[in-house]
């Protein structure tokens, strides 16, 4: 086994990072089990949104049973006002008057969930969607968290004890080093395979 695998993420992994996938898009990956959603500019929220909502508007908690939403301010799920409740794949989550997200768990065998704005609102981070990564994150043809139809074999990001790794059935390079089918990931890692290029970035605190 590759010795590099042991020292995957040298320090404790950050609570979130940005995933840039060439030709597909940018994603904010949250690794914590609990994230808070709120208006941009507030330090209180893990996921900042440019919308007419509260600084701390809602919390989403990943439990063994599923994703549990706790509303701090007005939240509706599929049009029904809720204070607490589980989220199901395909639910439309509306924060405040207009900011709406589509909540999905696109890959049945993975607990990871995707939160995608559908009302034209933007995250503070310049990304198209937030992924709450549980054990793994699938990039490839559907079903996947990051859909890329052209990719012949899926690429899987997974949690390691103490870090993150990447698995792919094809040869790849991580920061220029060649790996056969799996390799370690760290902040700033740039992965290139024959099918795609992706990069991990730790977001800087923005204003």
């Amino acid at each position: 086994m590759n010795p590099a695998l042991k020292e995957t993420w040298k320090q404790e992994p950050p609570s979130q990072f940005l995933l840039w996938v060439d030709g597909v898009g940018g994603f904010l990956i949250c690794l914590e089990n609990r994230v808070t959603l709120g208006q941009a500019g507030g330090e209180k929220s893990d996921i900042g949104i440019l919308a007419d909502i509260s600084r701390h508007h809602a919390t989403i908690q990943r439990d063994p049973e599923g994703y549990f939403l706790e509303a701090v301010r007005k939240v509706t799920i599929n049009g029904q006002p809720v204070e607490k409740g589980f989220l199901h794949s395909g639910d439309r989550l509306t924060l405040g008057p207009s900011c709406q997200f589509l909540f999905t768990q696109p890959v049945p065998i993975s607990a990871s969930a995707r939160l995608e704005p559908v009302s034209g609102h933007r995250f503070v981070q310049p990304v198209g969607a937030v992924i709450m990564m549980a054990d793994s994150l699938v990039i490839g043809p559907e079903p996947a968290h990051v859909v890329m139809e052209d990719l012949p074999k899926p690429i899987i990001l997974f949690r390691n004890p103490g870090g993150l790794g990447i698995r792919h059935d094809r040869p790849m390079t991580i920061n220029g080093h060649a790996f056969k089918d799996r390799g370690p990931l760290e902040p700033g890692a740039k992965v290139k395979t024959e099918g795609l290029a992706l990069a991990l970035e730790i977001p800087q605190a923005r204003r």
């Binding site: 940005l18 840039w20 996938v21 060439d22 030709g23 597909v24 898009g25 940018g26 310049p126 052209d150 700033g188 740039k190 395979t193 024959e194 099918g195 795609l196 290029a197 990069a199 970035e201």
Partner: peptide, 25 residues
């Protein structure tokens, strides 16, 4: 079909702009 991009995330080929990802060709 792999889209090969000359620049990758974090590079600043153009002064004042930081590339995040390739979009297309």
């Amino acid at each position: 079909m792999l889209m090969k991009f000359t620049y990758s995330c974090g590079q600043k080929p153009l002064d004042g702009y930081e590339v995040k990802r390739g979009v297309g060709r």
